[in-house]
Structures are given as structure tokens and as C-alpha cells.
Design a protein around this nucleic acid. Sequence first.
DNA 1: TCAGAAGCAAGAGCAGTGCTCTCTTTTCGG
DNA 2: CCGAAAAGAGAGCACTGCTCTTGCTTCTGA
Lengths: 230, 230
Amino acid sequence: MSTAQGARARAREEVTAAIKEAARGQLAQEGAAKLSLRAVARELGMASSALYRYFPSRDDLLTALIIDAYDSLGETAEQARDAASEAPPPVRWLTVCEAARGWALAHPHEFALIYGSPVPGYAAPDTTVPAAARIGLVLIGVVRDAHLGPGLARLPLPAELRPEAERMTADFAPGLPPETAAPLVAAWAQLMGLIGFEVFGQFHRVVEDREGFFRHAAGRLGESVGLTPS
Amino acid sequence: MSTAQGARARAREEVTAAIKEAARGQLAQEGAAKLSLRAVARELGMASSALYRYFPSRDDLLTALIIDAYDSLGETAEQARDAASEAPPPVRWLTVCEAARGWALAHPHEFALIYGSPVPGYAAPDTTVPAAARIGLVLIGVVRDAHLGPGLARLPLPAELRPEAERMTADFAPGLPPETAAPLVAAWAQLMGLIGFEVFGQFHRVVEDREGFFRHAAGRLGESVGLTPS
DNA sequence: TCAGAAGCAAGAGCAGTGCTCTCTTTTCGG
DNA sequence: CCGAAAAGAGAGCACTGCTCTTGCTTCTGA
């Protein structure tokens, strides 16, 4: 945002970016647990204490990296959606899912940062929420497009879940039939479960044809939210 | 195993158990990242160096805790299955799923240890594999029972995934129709995705009726492997 | 314009960590 | 009973996050 607002502010932004860049490099090599402020400072040729002018603590640096990771994943998903804007919704759904998987495989430690165990304290701070929502919004958008067209199947909804489903649609998926809200949220979590198992090595000696397996599973996930293949 | 084999060996087992017990306590309070060997030693009133007679490194202690956590979850799942042995397979599936969720909510840090980001190095060592498989075997067993009875729906299987599906059934789900193998593995990963999202706070301000939402999602997960509700 | 305020960098230092080494004590087996 | 093996204790190394103090630079407002 507001650039060219004094040489000092620009320098600050540049140093901040450099710190995050170096930290991201360490993250990719060693993982979040071994990310060291002193090593980052060493790589940048500055005193470790100077680093605290930019991030008040190690956890704050990690939080910044978390937000960046959410944004990076979200942007990847958005690009995949836009690139497949001509395709029918089920294909677009699969494209977005595969883009998310590809991003996670390319950035395993960043994926672990956002969908693995939360490292700082216990729960992630609220500042991460908007960035975290991006990929969810992409998935919702694909389903909404299908609903506006003719291609969304109706799903059964147990009576006791109806109030929750209506609250969900009102909160973050307006214009969608309430029956799809819960399956959509579930599919979001399940998609990350599939990706996480692959990234974290849980499929070791279990799934060999990872690509084909994921295609199949993600396709069925799309069906579970009402996207019927042609 | 081999107890009463000399007082020395028994003392060793006791100390080993005490170390793991104290470590588990720290894990539950602070999380894996802040588990400190020295703090464990302090709590037990022994020198930190003495601890290395029992675990050659911090990561080895963590690995032991990982195996115990897998076993604890597996045992919980097995008990739930046995307690519902009279119920029809779809109900038993749901019972096992809910038991897994309950265990994870009761032991969030242990869940994070096994299904969150792998802490030591990158991938978990092979010694964890048998313990990790336990809950998977429970899920397979439920579906197999349904197959031996009349209650398993046939699923479509894309031709390009057939070899992989047949390898899977041969490897760890003999006697099951190949079409269910891939959905079963996917359901396993997706179940942990659902639980993980709830445990890690990803459903914050998204899902309110967690219990009902999970019931619904887990039930549909059962359907996705062919378990048709009565 | 130019002093004061604010921002920035650096170094020393504190408390804590994982881990290794050496030394002493205890315990077991032949 | 005695030598060997196991266990414990303590000092110490290199590292960590973080704080405090000390200078220096840049910006700002009277």
C-alpha cells in the first residue's frame, strides 16, 4: 500500500521484506521448529537485537509468515480458478483442488505452518482470518457459479442441522442453498486432510499413484457438494 | 513384555515410563515445541544428563510419545468398535469416527503430534507405522463386516485407478472389493482433516454446532465408502 | 534553521536449551 | 568377591529468544 511515503518508511518496508524472505528460506530448509532469529540476522549481516525493531518476537515473525502463506495459497487458487473460468464447474473445482495440492507439495513447510499444528501458543491470532478465508471463498465461488447455472444437485439436509446450515449460508455463502453449506465446509476441511496426509508422508507405502488418487478423491469431493460431472 | 527379569531391568522400565509420563504432562500443557528435556529431568528430580541413558535425543523421546499417541487413539477406536459390535455397520462407522474425534479433542497436543506437522526432521520414522495403522485397520474392519453382510454399496471405479485399487486391496484390505479401497483411504485422510480443523481452531466462527456438523459429515463419509444408512 | 524527538543499529548480558564429556557410585553376573 | 556394566551427577559448549544500554542517524515542528 502507501509507498513513497518518506525514505525511512520505504527502507523499513524493504528490511521487513528482506527479513521475511530470509526467514522463508530457513523455513523451507529446516521447518518452523528450527527457524532461528539469530540465524536470520546473521544471514542479513545485522545484529540479532536489531531484528526486534521489526518483529517484537519470534512468534510474530511466524505469524507474518503464516499470513503470507495463506495469501500465497489463496492467490494460487484464485489463479487456477481464473485460468479455468471457461470450464464447467466440476472441472473448475478439480482444477482449484489440484492447484492447492500443487502449492502444498511445492511449499510443504509453509503448508505445515498453516494447516499443521499451530506453532505459537495454541490458536492462531485473529489477524490471520482474512488471509485464511481466501481459498475457502474460491471454493464457495465455484459452487455458487454452478448454482446460478443449472448444474448443482440438491442435497438432503437433516432437520437438526438446518439452523446451523442457514446461519452458515447467511454468514459467508449468501445465495447458496442451505443444504450445500455444511458439505462445502466439510469438503474444505477434507480437502486439506487429503493434501496434508500426502505432504506429511502419511500415504507412505499406502498410496502409490498419488496424482490419480487425488484426482479421484477431489472429484468425489466435488460431487459431495452437489457438483455433478457431465 | 518380559518383566521380573532382574530388578535392574524393571527399574529401567519404570524410569522410562516415568520420563514419558512427565513428558506427556508437559506436552499437554505447552505443546511439542516447548517440550524441554531439562524441565522433564527437573520434574523427576534427576540430572538432565541422566535422561540420555533412556532416550538418546529429544527427538527420540518425541518419537516414543508419537507411538504412544497412535496406540492410544487406536485403542480408543477399537474399544468404540467393540462397544458397538451389535449395531449395523453405518452406525458402527459413526461410532468409531466420533470416538476418534473425542480422543482428539481430549488430547489436542497429542493429536497435533501425530496428525499435525511432523516435528522431528521431516517424515516420521518407520517405527511408528504399525501403531499408526491401528485406526486405519478399525475403519477397514467396519467396512469389511458390511461387505460380508449385505450392506455395502458398489461404487464406480475409473479404469485408470483400477491397478492402484487392486494393489491397495491386496496390501492391506484383502477380501474387500477394489472399488472401495481408494474411497476408504480417502475417507481416512478426510476424517482426520475434519478432526484436525476442529482441533486446530480452523472452524472458529465458521462452525458453531461442532457436534452436529461432525455427525453429519462423518455419516456422509461412511456413505462415500459404500455404507448405506438403513 | 536547527534543536529535540523518534527511529535504528549494535553490543553485552541473562536465562534457558540440547547435548557431550568426565567422574563417581551402584548393581549385577560369573 | 571382584571385575564389568549400567546409572547418576556435574561441568561445560554452543546455541537460542529476548532485554537493556549506548551511540548514531533521520525526521519534524517551532
